[in-house]
Simulated assay, not measured.
Amino acid sequence: MTIADRAAPAVPDDDPARSLTVAHPDDPATTYISLAGDNYAMLIGGEQTNGKYCLIDMRVPDGGGPPPHRHDFEEMFTILEGEIEFTFRGEKRTVGAGSTVNIPANAPHFFRNVSGASARMLCMCTPAGQEEFFRRVGDEVASKDAPPPSLTADEVAERRKRATELAPAYRTEML
């Protein structure tokens, strides 16, 4: 069934209270979060989209990426630079610049940068909320190129514990 086959209500009126959003990773107002060694620029959040989606510019060092997890929202990645190995339901697939990957809701997955150099991708989550989770579990840094903070073993353990404890509130399960 296509969208055109579905009976749908009329398109709602424009909401003039909502404004155009223009985001750029070099904008001084951008928030940058270091999380597990990756650097995430929070480009567009739920506050700009009425909670419909968020957009994050991810810079992932060689070998970087999150631990295995799953969540009840859709996640889409467009690789801009480098190669990312996605593990989806236990199957590995390497994807290069120019490709887009959609992770269906609830599916176990994770990714690793296998480029031999830094990689970059855009991540869109729908609905929004992932950007808030990242802000709560990561560390704010000064810029898109800022190195991750030097954390002690205890601080790393505290970040992992915080992520595990907050994950359910953000519809995420760490595996």
Rank of each mutant, 00 (worst) to 15 (best):
V60K: 01
V141N: 00
L80F: 01
R120F: 01
M121L: 14
V95N: 06
Y40Q: 13
E131C: 08
L80D: 00
K92I: 07
A97R: 01
G116M: 06
V95F: 08
E74T: 15
D62L: 06
G90V: 07
F133T: 13
E140M: 12
A107L: 12
A36T: 13
A117E: 03
V60M: 13
L80G: 01
R136M: 14
P68M: 08
E140Y: 12
E132D: 15
C123A: 13
T87K: 01
M124I: 13
V60Y: 01
E140T: 15
I84R: 03
E85A: 08
R89Q: 11
G63I: 06
S118G: 13
N102F: 13
E140D: 12
F73C: 12
C123E: 15
T100G: 04
L55E: 07
G45P: 02
H109S: 01
V60A: 07
E47F: 06
A41G: 06
P66S: 00
P61T: 00
V114Q: 02
L43S: 00
P108H: 05
F77A: 05
C123F: 05
A128D: 10
E81A: 02
R93T: 09
T126G: 15
R112S: 05
C123H: 08
S115A: 08
G51M: 04
K52Q: 14
P104R: 09
D57H: 07
R136V: 05
M42I: 11
G45R: 06
D72Y: 11
E74A: 15
N106H: 14
I44A: 10
V141M: 04
K52R: 15
V101C: 01
S115T: 09
E83P: 03
T126C: 15
D139R: 14
M124D: 05
G82P: 10
T78N: 12
T87M: 07
N39G: 11
L122N: 04
D38V: 12
Y53R: 09
D57F: 04
N102V: 15
N39L: 13
P67V: 14
F73D: 10
E83Q: 13
I56S: 06
G37R: 07
A128K: 09
F88C: 03
N39P: 04
M42C: 00
E75A: 14
M42E: 05
T100C: 09
F86C: 03
G45Y: 04
R112W: 05
F86S: 07
M124Q: 10
V141D: 07
N50D: 12
I84N: 02
D57R: 02
R89L: 11
R135I: 10
V60D: 09
P104H: 03
E75K: 08
L43K: 01
G90F: 01
V95Q: 03
F110E: 06
G138I: 02
C123R: 04
F134W: 11
M124K: 10
A105W: 02
R135G: 11
E74V: 14
D139Q: 13
V114A: 08
F110N: 09
L80T: 05
T100D: 00
F133C: 12
D57M: 02
D62M: 05
G82A: 00
V101Q: 00
M58P: 01
G138H: 04
